[in-house]
């Protein structure tokens, strides 16, 4: 309520203006341009005028486009629940001070902070057909696992998913641990007195306590997987073989910068922006509603 005390001041614009101008130039301006691009025909990087939504029609009749969208969905379904389950288990155990927990928190943080390019490049070398992972499987006598993990059409997407789970565990773990440290310990102690087992504490205290954090994680991760995967995919598979590991973001890159199909690429871009916006506003309004409810309770 403190906010209402603020006096109306026009100089707010002066404080805001520099940042606003830069952000408008870097975000709003290109997105408006992209919308216009998506309505035009293109030849040699030059627009040839309005073309009756042909770019959108081309997109909707392009089988690669649907494959790309379904890859997006598969990645999200493959990564998000797995990371939640693994990170929750880890978080609960670390919160319970499992032996070695401080070393583990330190180690698990490493994949999160390493630049995407570094992780993707090292993993590419590890997963190489002639790389150490296949050597390891052969040494174990598991020759049937000696596969071209990034180069086989049926495998590349799976490999990307597993490597993304591997990279993102630490991020979710950090969020969950940060929330757990704010939970009142006495709840756990009370449950212990009542004879609750470790599993019961996990399912009936930890998970409900973390529900809102989990939903924050889901939103952040889904947006991350849809919109910020370029360098990862570019280094590991370049969307291939064929289109087998291409996601919408990479599809836009391929169309605009590689195939010079600017119109089609821009139309795909408009679809990504619409999906992103729907996500943000749902998230924004959900958290607003929650904040309002919290105020009422107080």
């Amino acid at each position: 309520m403190a906010k209402n005390k603020l006096t109306y001041r026009n100089n707010g614009y002066w404080f805001l203006l520099p940042a606003l101008l830069v952000v408008a130039f870097i975000f709003l301006n290109p997105i408006i341009r992209m919308f216009l691009f998506s309505l035009e025909g293109w030849k040699y990087l030059r627009p040839t005028g309005f073309n009756n939504f042909e770019n959108y029609l081309a997109l909707l009749t392009d089988p690669h486009f649907y494959g790309t969208l379904s890859n997006n969905v598969i990645i999200i379904i493959g990564v998000v629940p797995a990371v939640i389950v693994i990170s929750l288990t880890f978080a609960q155990a670390i919160f319970g001070k499992i032996p070695g927990y401080s070393l583990y928190t330190f180690l698990f943080f490493i994949p999160v902070v390493l630049p995407d390019i570094v992780v993707a490049k090292i993993l590419t070398e590890v997963l190489n057909k002639a790389g150490p992972l296949n050597d390891f499987f052969n040494w174990l006598g598991l020759g049937f696992l000696d596969q071209d993990w990034l180069g086989a059409p049926g495998l590349s997407l799976f490999t990307i998913i597993v490597s993304l789970i591997w990279k993102n565990i630490g991020f979710a773990l950090l969020l969950f641990l940060a929330r757990l440290t704010t939970v009142d310990i006495s709840i756990y102690e009370a449950a212990e007195i009542d004879g609750a087992s470790a599993t019961q504490k996990f399912f009936f205290i930890t998970i409900p306590m973390l529900a809102s954090t989990i939903s924050v994680y889901v939103v952040l991760q889904v947006i991350g997987l849809m919109s910020f995967l370029f360098s990862y995919i570019h280094v590991m598979t370049a969307g291939g073989p064929g289109y087998s590991s291409t996601v919408l973001e990479y599809f836009i890159y391929l169309n605009t910068f590689r195939l010079q199909e600017i119109g089609v690429g821009s139309a795909a871009g408009m679809i990504l922006i619409v999906i992103t916006m729907i996500f943000i506003y749902n998230y924004l309004f959900a958290s607003r509603k929650k904040a309002a409810k919290a105020q009422e309770i107080r």
């Binding site: 870097i26 290109p30 997105i31 919109s227 370029f230 890159y253 605009t256 871009g269 990504l272 922006i273």
Partner: peptide
């Protein structure tokens, strides 16, 4: 702006 993919602004 936090959530908009860099890829969307790259070409324009």
């Amino acid at each position: 702006g936090i959530y908009v993919s860099t890829m969307l602004i790259a070409l324009p």
